[in-house]
Amino acid sequence: MTHLVMDVDTGIDDSLALLYLLGDSRAQLEAIVCTAGNVPARQVADNTLGWLALAGAGAIEVALGAEVPLSQPLQTTEDTHGPLGVGYAELPPHGRTISGRHAASVWSEAARSHPGEVTGLVTGPLTNLALAVQLDPELPQLLGRLVVMGGALNHPGNTRPTVEWNTAVDPDAAKIVFDRFAGLPAERRPILCPLDLTERIVMTSAHVERLAAASGCAAPERILPSDDRGRRSSADVELIRQLSDAIRFYMEFHRDMGQGFIAHMHDPFAAAVALDPGRAQYRPATLDVELAGRLTRGQIVADWPGPSGAGIWGRPPNADVAADTDPEAFFDALIERIAAVALDGPAR
Rank of each mutant, 00 (worst) to 15 (best):
L291C: 07
L131P: 03
D7K: 03
R26A: 07
R294S: 13
H155S: 14
C34Y: 02
D170I: 13
A103N: 07
P220W: 09
R315F: 04
G37T: 12
S99E: 09
A130F: 02
R210Q: 13
V44Y: 00
R200E: 12
H254D: 02
A340W: 00
E138P: 03
V177M: 02
D13Q: 04
A285V: 10
E109D: 13
V321N: 04
M6H: 12
A45L: 05
V5N: 00
P317V: 13
L139M: 05
I176W: 00
N166V: 09
E290M: 06
S105P: 01
A302F: 03
A271N: 10
P307K: 12
R42G: 11
L334K: 02
L143V: 06
G309L: 08
V341Y: 01
P140A: 10
A329C: 07
P69S: 10
Q134Y: 09
P317H: 13
R255L: 11
L131E: 05
A89D: 02
M203A: 15
E67Q: 09
F181T: 10
M1P: 03
H207T: 11
G82N: 12
A63L: 07
S113R: 15
G144E: 06
T77F: 15
I312N: 04
L334W: 00
G306M: 09
R348G: 15
E328W: 06
S233I: 07
S105M: 11
T119N: 03
K175P: 04
V202I: 15
G65C: 08
T159I: 07
F178N: 12
A31D: 00
A36D: 08
E199P: 05
T159Y: 08
Q141L: 14
D24F: 09
H102C: 08
P185Q: 06
A89K: 05
P161K: 04
L91E: 13
V163C: 00
R189H: 12
A168Y: 10
R279A: 14
G345R: 05
D245T: 10
D179R: 09
T97W: 11
A280V: 13
P185H: 06
F331M: 08
H254T: 05
F178I: 09
R337D: 07
R188C: 06
R283Y: 04
G100R: 15
R283E: 13
P92W: 12
E117D: 05
S244D: 09
L64G: 07
I247S: 00
R283W: 01
P171F: 07
I335A: 04
G58F: 06
A280E: 09
G82A: 11
V33I: 02
P171H: 10
R297K: 08
V86S: 08
D324A: 14
T76E: 10
A152Q: 05
L126H: 02
A322T: 05
R241Y: 04
L129K: 06
W313Q: 12
P190H: 08
Y20F: 15
T119A: 10
I247D: 00
A280G: 06
D324Q: 14
G260S: 04
H207N: 11
L243G: 04
H94L: 08
A333M: 10
V148K: 05
A174D: 06
T204E: 01
R229C: 06
Y20W: 12
V68H: 12
D245Y: 07
R96P: 09
V8T: 14
R200K: 15
L291T: 07
T2V: 10
G314M: 12
D288V: 11
V106P: 01
G230N: 08
V321T: 11
V208W: 05
